[in-house]
Design a protein around this nucleic acid. Sequence first.
DNA 1: CGTGCAATTGACGTGGCTCAAGTGGTGTGG
DNA 2: CCACACCACTTGAGCCACGTCAATTGCACG
Lengths: 249, 249
Amino acid sequence: MTQKPGSIHISCQNCGISQLCLPYTLDTNSLNRLDAIIERKRPYQKGDTLFSNGEPLHSLFAVRSGSFKTFNVDNNGNEQITSFHLPGDLIGFTSIANETYQGYSEALETSMVCEIPFNHLESLSRQLPALHKQILKLMSEEIKQDQHLLSAVNSKSAESRLATFFLELSSRFMIRGLSPSEFRLSMTRNEIGNYLGITVETVSRILSRFQKEKWLKVEGRFIHILDEHSLKRISGVQAVNCPLKTVNY
Amino acid sequence: MTQKPGSIHISCQNCGISQLCLPYTLDTNSLNRLDAIIERKRPYQKGDTLFSNGEPLHSLFAVRSGSFKTFNVDNNGNEQITSFHLPGDLIGFTSIANETYQGYSEALETSMVCEIPFNHLESLSRQLPALHKQILKLMSEEIKQDQHLLSAVNSKSAESRLATFFLELSSRFMIRGLSPSEFRLSMTRNEIGNYLGITVETVSRILSRFQKEKWLKVEGRFIHILDEHSLKRISGVQAVNCPLKTVNY
DNA sequence: CGTGCAATTGACGTGGCTCAAGTGGTGTGG
DNA sequence: CCACACCACTTGAGCCACGTCAATTGCACG
């Protein structure tokens, strides 16, 4: 989530996060062909938009550095954030169905992206089974993540939503080779609350509570996770391979 | 959502919902090849499971008739329903990432499915661009739908969640050529509440309120939408091509 | 006809929203 | 370098929507 000012000519080959991204499992030849269709442009500044709702879909975007939020706007003009994107994430899968961009995507800080023209990607993926598979996998991941968020949001208490949120972020940082216990948030409390369906004030109060419990240390945007276990306990969600018990939902 | 007892040998060719499903845009030859890999088995009875969490992914499932719910189970053994599936829906996209089934999928009523071995589908889709495209499209749709649900659930009030739920169902029935204003729910109030993150009692109370307002007629599982416009008004979500306004979220 | 689950309705308590005030950090212009 | 404005964030007070608990009714099925 820190800015990584890089030169304009960078290839997938020497990209530090390629194992999270489309190149995963691609051999050198395939990688070069993928690389050839990717456009890398100058950095996006905080607040710049990748796309706006309704525009025709031309490219997917892979985050190289920095971070983005995507959100929809409802009848009343209210934002509803549907995801935060970190380096290695692909943005735009929701837009494939209609071939127009769904919602808005906006940089949360200075960020770099790789732009992948969708038509080229589609035809290339027909020639490269590994690429094809990786696209399916990334889309599948996104569905999983959305459903995970849904569970978090549906598990009533604001405490468990926030705990889940931080654990989620933590594991995403870990996968990216960053510290899972200390990180800087690129989003405001407001945006966190929006994402989780709670108000800023509640976010703030619960952060204070977590801090009092010594589960977290909070210094503005800096988060230090002190007691992952307690957070997991109250987060309640995401047990993998959990045996099906008699439920009273 | 009504049971449609069919013979065992049915092809995509004469399937009434093929335009919602994988066959969409496939020519006759392609259709036959797809048809050849699909297995059609005897009906699932209410409560039968398509798959359980952690099992190796072998097939995707297309709902032919009836309906299913998919859900996860958290640490405390609580169900969290992530989607209801109607005829034409594909089930199993979340499971592609890990190649093991994510969560559980269970019939809500007597239902028929087409079982599509994943390996075969994958190799076939490399040969048939139209099939490939349709898979992407369906996955993209699923992501969109999840995010739509998320918006509904995050839009605080229980009223707007329920309104959104019924409008969503209504439009899904309409797409399927069924009445958008009169339909039968195959899920319990409990399951609706679970899905939307509210309690049974609240579902029940709000249904009574909607009925008092003459927006709906409710007779047990039968729903009759009387005033779609009012429901849309309080649902608040899903404005397509809505201009971005100054927001105070 | 009895058993059991689904649904409704009421009474009550509370978590989180709303409104409001205050603090701190950052950028801008004098 | 300070003064000011602006925004993100925190904290408090009060209130209400919704969760919890409990009782009742209705419907399906053996």
